[in-house]
Design a protein around this nucleic acid. Structure first.
Lengths: 228, 228
DNA sequence: CTCCGTTTATGACCTGCGTCATACTGCATT
DNA sequence: AATGCAGTATGACGCAGGTCATAAACGGAG
């Protein structure tokens, strides 16, 4: 049973007893999204909670002056929309597919009953939020005290760690990321992101083809991320 | 019963049935802290979860170069240390009392059993984390795209909203905050924080006595926060 | 292949704000 | 009163990086 194996690997469903398994998973349905599709928009009333099954989703936030900020990149196993679903406010950010992906969806009401009936599910939500709070704290620190080069090196390493595949050439990040995306992830402008990435390429720390980055010299990137 | 009234006002204990009340609250003890006392340090193994009863606590993060960043200011009703307690990792930040305060403490183990036994408690944790995630998202956006003046105006307004008392002179923030604290909250330097605050004072948007800020012209501050 | 929109690239200029240096102020301690 | 320290204040200087302009490179659509 293929579908079941994939679901069991997700932390949301770990720890469920055999008996509860079906009752819980039946509340989830699957939905496919294509690259650039929106899953939900900032401020919308929360109708559902999502769990990433495959693919990557970016959560971003708009500013009045048009500048976007990427709050995080959600990978398989992570939840989307949990904050809004539980406090009933609007989604705090817009979720958009970076690549084709598949999400598990559960209606808000079902989600709320689930969390009171199955403590393991509540713990899964808590753990997911905890992970994101740790990420946020690090991002805040980075934006507050580090310079652009450090922040970009750090983001590349992070993406490499979460979505990278090690090869002979180095750690490959296979993801359609533009320099604009990198800029939005690091709080800078496209031009600066391009300049820094070009510099990294000239120094042979990375190699870039379209929608793909190869981290060649992890150590050097680490050094830049840590110290400057 | 004074103690009980105060506890009941905290969202953590709302929704508990009469029967469960004592069993739950008995697991909590109270602890007093004086201004500048540390509650826990970044990286420490989590031994307890805290709930602010009275006073204000800042959660900050150190950088290698000595610059600190204030991640948030916790007010009565909010939790401290929940991330670490639930995922078992070290505390993501250092918690330090801004003023004398009183915290409710619950041992990590008790906390974990509580969350599986009482769904309302789990929901309280989820809601607390949700609030913080919303705050983090806003802080990230602010740091990423706004300029120092906007960020400082925003922080002043936020402190005013959460800890301010409206008087004839304006909204008074009674809290021993130094310019260094303001700088650490907005990702800038003391000097710049001083300059901006002085400018605000010259423009009669705020008034400052020691450890106390009065927001005189809320509208003007709002305008600065929104647009620049 | 040609056209056209998106992405990458690069230079010139300018400014916000970090850095360094030097005071001044107010409160606490002896 | 004298000393000392933490916090506040202000100026001078430099540079990281934002802004604006222009153009090359790439890939998809017809």
């Amino acid at each position: 049973m293929d579908r079941r194996d994939i679901l069991m690997a997700l932390p949301v469903f770990a720890g469920l007893s055999e008996r509860d398994w079906e009752k819980v998973t039946d509340l989830f349905s699957e939905r496919q999204y294509q690259k650039d599709d929106y899953i939900f928009l900032e401020g919308e009333a929360p109708e559902a909670l999502y769990v990433v099954k495959t693919g990557k989703i970016k959560v971003l936030r708009h500013s009045t002056d048009g500048k976007d900020v990427v709050l995080r990149v959600a990978s398989p196993g992570q939840m989307l929309g949990s904050v809004a679903v539980f406090d009933g406010g609007g989604y705090p950010g817009t979720a958009q597919a970076i690549e084709d992906c598949c999400l598990l969806v559960i209606a808000r009401n079902d989600c709320l009953t689930l969390v009171t009936r199955y403590p393991v599910f509540a713990l899964a939500v808590i753990n997911d939020m905890g992970t994101r709070l740790r990420g946020s704290a690090e991002q805040i620190r980075s934006l507050a005290v580090e310079r652009v080069e450090q922040r970009i090196a750090r983001v590349l390493l992070k993406l490499g760690a979460s979505a990278g595949a090690d090869t002979a050439d180095g750690r490959v990040i296979e993801m359609p990321l533009t320099r604009q995306d990198v800029a939005d992830m690091t709080g800078t402008t496209v031009e600066t992101a391009i300049r820094v990435m070009s510099k990294f390429r000239r120094l042979e720390l990375i190699r870039t083809r379209r929608g793909k980055v190869v981290l060649v010299d992890l150590q050097a990137l680490q050094d830049i991320a840590e110290a400057g």
